[in-house]
Design a protein around this nucleic acid. Structure first.
Length: 316
DNA sequence: TAGGCCATCTGGTCCT
DNA sequence: AGGACCAGATGGCCTA
């Protein structure tokens, strides 16, 4: 499933639903504000948790007052001391909770940042249509699996098979996006309404070293697949990147050096040396672009010489 | 309007 | 004791 475009700030940053209550504000003022976030932006208010805490505190105070009454006036001083100590302890607990919340937010933010970085290095990086977290992880997993297979076999799969591998287990919108990114008609392999779907691992003939395209499907884009056809056969011997992947069992180490051989897209915009596979697309507009509908993805056409060197082992 | 996705809070558990 | 990590709960936003 696709989520908000990259351009669009997350909803929690603009018009956040997490409004504050007076009680929460009073507490938060004593906590260091989170960078990039309004300190009054808390969760207590909308859930009424701050109010609930206040109520609990009142109830505790009432109980303590009743205890004092039962114990008589002589122990009133000790009771009030207990009350103060209890209040201080409560304050400490609540303060720790608020600090823990802030830490948890930061932790999740860093996790999301890592996911954003991952989004940028998976094969389909759309600037306007962001992959969801789970789809990003699935796509990355398939990508790693596919790259590992290429390394293991030394063979380059045909485009259709490669895309099918990437899309294994992805939702239909994401599959369409990936297919569009790679200029493949999603209908080539997405399940038809009739329920029939293109087999992900068709029973092609096995070629141990042949480069002939056997069963190489034509794609609607009309792009010449040429070197992408054929030698992915050995992949069909391996489990698919769904739940039964060797990656799951830890038996297959893709051993992909992302900064080396494949050198995926780096953080710096405009660095295209990382074009592995000859089919890298990116979101940065550069030169000729391809209008692919709502996804605003652009074809990365140029390859640097260094990249060609890196890809040499995969050319036939 | 239902469902998907998300951010956040929260309490529990584990570790240092 | 306190921090990291985790999973459940909650409610908002968005889209089909």
């Amino acid at each position: 499933m696709l989520t908000l475009p990259f351009d669009e700030p997350p909803s929690n940053q603009t018009g956040s639903p997490f409004r504050t209550s007076w009680a929460a504000n009073q507490l938060i003022r004593s906590v260091k504000p989170e960078p990039g976030r309004a300190p009054e932006d808390t969760f207590e208010s909308r859930r009424g948790i701050g109010e609930r805490d206040d109520r609990e505190e009142e109830e505790k105070e009432k109980e303590e007052e009743e205890e004092e009454k039962e114990q008589g006036g002589g122990q009133r001083r000790r009771g009030s001391y207990k009350k103060k100590a209890s209040q201080a302890r409560l304050e400490r607990v609540r303060l720790r909770r608020i600090e823990a919340n802030a830490r948890e937010r930061n932790r999740m933010h860093s996790l999301n940042n890592a996911l954003d970085r991952l989004r940028k290095v998976v094969p389909c990086h759309s600037r306007t249509q962001k992959l969801s977290k789970i789809e990003t992880l699935r796509l990355a997993r398939n990508y790693i699996w596919a790259l590992g297979e290429i390394l293991n076999t030394g063979k380059r799969p045909d485009l259709l098979t490669f895309v099918q591998t990437l899309c294994k287990g992805l939702s239909q919108p994401t599959t369409s996006l990936v297919a569009s990114c790679l200029q493949l008609n999603p209908r080539s392999f997405i399940s038809e309404p009739s329920g029939e779907s293109f087999p992900l691992y068709p029973a092609y003939h096995h070629h141990h070293h042949g480069a002939e395209a056997v069963g190489c499907s034509s794609v609607d884009s009309g792009r010449p697949l040429g070197s992408f056809c054929g030698p992915y056969d050995s992949l069909y011997d391996s489990p698919s990147p769904d739940g039964s992947s060797p990656l799951d069992a830890g038996t297959l180490n893709p051993a992909v050096n992302f900064d080396g051989i494949f050198s995926l897209k780096r953080e710096e915009p405009g660095d295209y040396r990382s074009c592995h596979y000859g089919l890298r697309y990116c979101s940065v507009s550069q030169g000729s672009s391809t209008d692919l509908g709502p996804y605003d993805v652009r074809l990365r056409g140029q390859f640097y010489q260094a990249q060609e060197e890196l890809n040499k082992p995969f050319t036939y």
